[in-house]
Computed example of a mutant assay.
Amino acid sequence: MMRRGLLRRLRESLMGLRGLVSFLTIIPAGGSFEYAPRYFYLAPLIGLIEGLLSTPPLLVNKPIGAALATALTYLINGFQHMDGFLDFGETLLTGRRGEEAVRILKDPHRGSFALTLGLINVILVYSSLLSMGKNALVTLPITEASAAYVMFITAYLGKPSEGGLGRVFVIEAKGRGGLALSTLVYAVIAVTVPLLYHWGIWTISITITVSALVSVLMALLTVRLSHSRLGFVNGDVLGFSFELSKVTLLVTYSTLGYLLGVNPLNKLLKPPWCH
């Protein structure tokens, strides 16, 4: 009986993970959306998958490599995070609150604010990846995992909206043990990825510290802005938190490298297949 119960839970977990991959990316993983919100705490793992799939062009270490990697970061998730970034970003820039802010958020037409925000986002992501060179093979997957973790924290701290798909994810994020599990998944990713590339303890410590601080700050900022302008957190706000934290982290890593006079966090980068 216990064995059957365990197998059932494992099948449900697999269905939930596959459903989450299908929902958050363009990867046709199948699964069931019914279970996906219950396993939202695995969002950092989905972010890691997105980051890893975006890194191959960076092996070229040329402007075209950075451009292709930038494009993949948006293509793999179907631009849905960027869509939320533009919608909520435009709402913030209008300065409106309450029902008027909600009306602007739901307006399907893009204004000049949204277009400008999108352009700034793409330019900053591209220039950051270009400046980091092949070290972005490590920082990009960690950044994508961090951005997905920020989405989960934002949902955990936020008030659910009255409708929409985002409401289900916000409610499920508050489930027992979700925050601890998501934090554990994120911590394992943040340590494992640089270890695979033979980064030292000091380098990994900087990476984890920067990622954790930026993640928490971006989540708190997004929740505060969303509650003050809309009164709730919905799917658009979650997408906004993802893109805001992604671009902030990439710019931070790139800036650290410039200030230190070296590429950020770096020693000689050795891919995991080299010894």
Rank of each mutant, 00 (worst) to 15 (best):
L196C: 03
S254G: 05
P37K: 09
L53E: 13
L86S: 13
P160G: 02
L238A: 03
S131D: 14
A180T: 08
D83V: 09
G19S: 06
I153L: 15
V60M: 14
R18S: 15
I208H: 05
G78F: 03
P141Q: 05
Q80A: 12
V262D: 10
N77D: 13
T154R: 06
I204M: 14
L52H: 08
V210G: 08
Q80C: 12
F169E: 08
P194S: 10
T139K: 01
G118V: 11
N61I: 00
R167E: 02
R229H: 13
L59C: 02
Y186V: 04
L48E: 08
V122Y: 06
H109G: 06
F79E: 02
L92N: 09
L221C: 02
V102N: 11
W202T: 07
G175A: 05
N61D: 13
S226I: 02
T73S: 14
M15W: 11
V185S: 09
P44K: 04
L140A: 04
T222L: 13
G175H: 11
L265P: 02
A148E: 12
I27Q: 08
L14N: 09
A66D: 04
D107L: 13
F242Q: 12
T73V: 15
S211F: 02
S241R: 14
T222N: 12
D107M: 06
V214C: 05
R8Q: 09
L196N: 07
G19Y: 11
T139E: 02
H275E: 15
G84K: 01
L59K: 08
G16C: 04
A29E: 02
G51L: 05
R224N: 15
I27H: 07
T192H: 07
L24E: 13
Y149K: 12
A101C: 12
E12D: 08
H81K: 02
L6P: 04
I153G: 07
N266K: 07
A173I: 01
I76T: 11
F85R: 13
V122P: 07
G257M: 14
